[in-house]
Simulated scan of single mutants.
Amino acid sequence: MSELDDRPAIAGLLALYCERLDEYDIDAVAALFTEDCVTDYGPGRGGPVTGRAAVRDRIAAGQAQFRRTHHQLGQSRVIHHAADPDRATAITYVTAAHEEWDGSRWRAHLRYVDELRREGGSWLIARRRVLAALVDGRPEIVWNWVPRRPQEPQDDRPPT
């Protein structure tokens, strides 16, 4: 398989994750990860978790907090590992909307930073780190944030 052939399969994997998550099909979500996977959705969403079974349990507990969710993918950049055609990295923008059981809603603008591995002809998520860029409505959740360089003061900006 060529790198060009892999891109649709990787995009399909990432889309399937969102579909199954929003459907609350937790076993199908877990099946998209390698057995030895590692995830980190941030300190306020369970922190680092290792192994498919533990990731499944963490996702199940996290998603049980919501009546509904909607995960929308944006741009995704896939980088193949030159030394290993069965490994790739993907950085994918995500907007995740959540409806709590009490009807309140909030939204997170995220990046999934994934290390992917092809096993048995299928791409799976081997490592996932979630970085928050902007979160609307849940300031108490502790996130891993997208790193930003310090900004230079500008003359036309109002003082803070």
Rank of each mutant, 00 (worst) to 15 (best):
V78G: 03
A30E: 00
C37V: 10
R68V: 11
D5N: 09
E100I: 03
A15K: 06
A11H: 15
Q75A: 15
P158A: 15
I141A: 11
L124G: 11
T69E: 01
A28E: 04
R149D: 11
D22N: 06
L110Y: 01
R129L: 08
C37Q: 04
I125F: 03
L73E: 01
L116E: 00
Q75M: 13
A15N: 10
R56M: 03
L16Q: 12
R20V: 05
S104L: 09
L73Q: 13
R45Y: 07
R127Q: 08
T69A: 10
R7E: 06
A11I: 02
P85W: 05
L134A: 14
T89E: 13
R45F: 14
T95G: 06
A126C: 04
T95N: 05
H109A: 12
V78Y: 08
A30M: 02
N144Y: 00
D36E: 10
A83N: 03
T34S: 11
I59G: 01
G121L: 04
A96K: 08
R111F: 13
D156A: 14
P159G: 13
E3K: 10
V29Q: 04
A9L: 15
G74S: 05
T92C: 10
A28L: 10
R77C: 09
W143F: 15
T160C: 11
Q63M: 14
H71I: 02
E3I: 06
D36P: 02
D27T: 12
V135I: 14
R129A: 04
Y93K: 08
P8M: 08
V49S: 03
E35L: 12
I79H: 13
I141P: 00
Q63S: 13
L131C: 03
R45C: 11
E140N: 06
L14A: 09
I59H: 04
P158E: 12
H70P: 00
A54W: 01
D22T: 02
P48V: 13
M1S: 14
G103E: 01
A15Q: 08
G62F: 11
R58V: 11
T69K: 10
A108K: 04
W123C: 03
H81K: 14
D40G: 02
Q72C: 12
W101F: 14
P85Y: 08
H81E: 14
I26M: 07
R128G: 03
R118N: 02
D22F: 11
D57M: 09
R107A: 12
Y17Q: 04
G74C: 06
L73W: 08
E119N: 12
R52Q: 13
N144S: 11
L110C: 03
D114N: 13
A30S: 06
V146I: 09
G103Y: 04
L131M: 10
N144C: 03
G120N: 02
G121V: 02
V142Y: 02
D156V: 15
E35N: 09
L4S: 11
A126V: 00
D156C: 13
